[in-house]
Amino acid sequence: MLDDTDRRILRQYQADPDLKGQELAERAGVTAATLTRRLERLRASGILKGAQAVIDWQALGYAVEVSLRVTLDKSRPQAFEEFTAAARKVPEVVEIQTFLGQVDVRLSVIARDLGHYQQLYREKILALPHMTDVEALMHIARIKYDERLPL
């Protein structure tokens, strides 16, 4: 599916997404026309989904991150859909993951401080539907965070 040229382009693009066309083409060892054509093909095939702004929520005053492992009432046919729909409405929930197994959902929640987290937990998290159990894991440090793929 990907050839060596595609991989070189994607490696360079991941390394520095702010590079503009000509410089990216030079670093990837292709012409600007080839780069444009390849990027269009990668986007059309769904491999390259686009670019996004990454905002440092800690710089905005959010000092607390908590992972909540949630078990849902599986006897309710719409439990997953209703729970995730409600969780999406909580602005401080920055990530939702679903699993197969004892834990059904993991929420990543940010808060300004412990008092703010306690308020969020009591007023918004505990109000989410169909929860049978919730376990909070306080984040201490992020050891590795890298969305780059080994191409």
Score class of each variant (00 low, 15 high):
Ala59Cys: 04
Lys20Gln: 13
Met1Ser: 14
Ala63Ser: 15
Ile9Met: 01
Asp18His: 13
Tyr145Asn: 15
Glu123Ala: 10
Leu2Asn: 02
Ser75Ile: 02
Leu10Pro: 07
Ala44Lys: 15
Leu24Pro: 06
Arg106Tyr: 06
Gly101Tyr: 05
Ala25Phe: 11
Arg122Ala: 13
Gln119Asn: 11
Met138Pro: 09
Ala111Glu: 10
Gln22Gly: 03
Tyr117Asp: 04
Glu23Met: 10
Leu2Tyr: 10
Leu126Pro: 02
Ala85Trp: 09
Pro129Asp: 00
Val64Met: 05
Lys49Ile: 08
Glu65Leu: 00
Arg69Asn: 13
Gln58Ile: 04
Glu65Phe: 01
Asp113Thr: 08
Gln14Cys: 13
Arg112Ala: 07
Leu120Ala: 00
Asp16Lys: 10
Phe99Ile: 01
Phe80Trp: 08
Glu23Gln: 15
Ile55Gly: 00
Leu42Met: 15
Ala59Gly: 13
Gln58Leu: 01
His116Trp: 09
Val90Lys: 05
Ile9Asp: 07
Thr71Ile: 11
Tyr13His: 14
Gln102Trp: 11
Gln119Ser: 10
Val30Asn: 01
Ala127Asp: 12
Arg11Val: 08
Val70Pro: 04
Ser45Gln: 15
Gly115Ser: 09
Lys20Met: 11
Arg37Ile: 05
Ala86Ile: 03
Lys89Phe: 04
Ile140Glu: 11
Asp73Asn: 11
Pro77Ser: 08
Thr34Trp: 03
Arg122Cys: 02
Ala85Gln: 14
Ala85Asn: 10
Leu72Ser: 02
Lys74Gln: 14
Leu72Cys: 04
Val64Trp: 00
Arg122Asp: 14
Gln119Ala: 13
Ser75Gln: 10
Ser75Gly: 10
Arg7Lys: 14
Lys20Trp: 11
Arg27Phe: 00
Leu149Cys: 01
Asp4Val: 07
Ala25His: 08
Leu149Asp: 09
Leu68Trp: 05
Pro91Ala: 07
Leu24Ile: 09
Ala15Gln: 13
Thr84Lys: 00
Leu48Asp: 06
Glu95Val: 05
Asp16Cys: 07
Glu82Trp: 07
Lys124Gln: 14
Glu81Pro: 05
Val134Glu: 02
Glu26Cys: 03
Ala79Cys: 11
Arg43Gly: 08
Ala53Met: 09
Ala53Ser: 11
Leu137Met: 10
Leu35Ser: 03
Val109Pro: 03
Ala28Ile: 05
Asp104Met: 06
Thr98Gly: 00
Met131Pro: 04
Ala79Leu: 08
Pro77Tyr: 11
Thr36Cys: 04
Glu82Gly: 00
Val64Ser: 01
Phe99Tyr: 15
Arg88Lys: 14
Val70Asp: 00
Leu24Lys: 08
Lys20Phe: 12
Leu151Ser: 03
Ala15Thr: 02
Asp73Gln: 02
Leu149His: 08
Leu39Ala: 03
Ala53Glu: 13
Ile110Gln: 03
Pro91Phe: 07
Tyr117Trp: 13
Gln119Lys: 15
Glu147Trp: 12
Phe99Asn: 00
Val94Ala: 06
Arg8Ile: 01
Arg27Leu: 10
Arg142Leu: 14
Val93His: 05
Asp104Gly: 02
Leu48Tyr: 12
Ser67Thr: 07
Ala141Ser: 15
Leu42Ile: 14
Ala44Thr: 13
Asp3Thr: 01
Thr98Val: 10
Val90Asp: 03
Ala136Gln: 05
Arg76Trp: 01
Leu128His: 00
Thr71Leu: 09
Gly50Ala: 04
Arg43Asn: 11
Leu100Asn: 12
